[in-house]
């Protein structure tokens, strides 16, 4: 199955940088990612294992940037933030990564997509891609995650690396 980029999008028809930025932001990342059932199943297994290990306080996948430099990457703390969101712990979410609930939502979407029967799965993925192309929600969330990372680095400095290196 191929997710086609919507035609006639007024934003992407706009010439110059505004149109280009709009087409980047509206690229359906999740829609492309979930095109095959195999990708959904592999991603679901990997992400659920990551969340379970984070919940158990075991560091299975370690961020190489944090490990090598002590500086966290934008995604550091997302698994633990997602677990905190799952446990309805807002303080934990803010402590680890405020985008944890968004990461949890993405995992749930991927898991659901993997479990759906093929006919429904195709329609479901098409709907996700359509929403992404219309709203640019996924890439906007990524951009906000990056800005949040820069903000945290500026405000917390070296404390952030120490906080995210220490496992609960």
């Amino acid at each position: 199955m191929r997710v086609e980029v919507l035609d006639g999008n007024p934003e992407s028809d706009r010439p110059g940088w505004a149109g280009r930025v709009s087409s980047w932001v509206r690229y359906p990342v999740l829609g492309s990612l979930l095109q095959t059932r195999r990708a959904c199943v592999v991603l679901s297994v990997v992400l659920v294992l990551q969340l379970v290990s984070a919940g158990l306080g075991v560091s299975v996948y370690q961020c190489p940037i944090l490990k090598l430099t002590g500086v966290p990457c934008p995604g550091c703390g997302l698994s633990r933030g997602a677990v905190a969101a799952l446990l309805l712990d807002p303080a934990g979410v803010v402590w680890w990564n405020a985008f944890g609930p968004a990461a949890l939502l993405a995992v749930v979407l991927i898991l659901l997509t993997g479990l759906l029967p093929e006919r429904h799965r195709r329609a479901w993925v098409g709907r996700i891609a359509w929403i992404e192309q219309k709203t640019g929600i996924t890439n906007t969330a990524f951009i906000l995650l990056w800005l949040y990372w820069v903000g945290r680095l500026v405000l917390l400095g070296g404390d952030l690396g120490g906080r995210l290196s220490a496992y609960p």
Binding site: V21, W24, L33, Y61, P64, I65, P74, G75, N139, F142
Partner: peptide, 24 residues
């Protein structure tokens, strides 16, 4: 390979880079 810098910037997080690398 991409026209804009979006994907390059997103790939700065290794886990997201790994996922996007497989997508593309």
């Amino acid at each position: 390979k991409e026209e804009g810098p979006l994907f390059g910037i997103l790939c700065i997080c290794p886990l997201i880079g790994l996922i996007l690398g497989w997508v593309k």
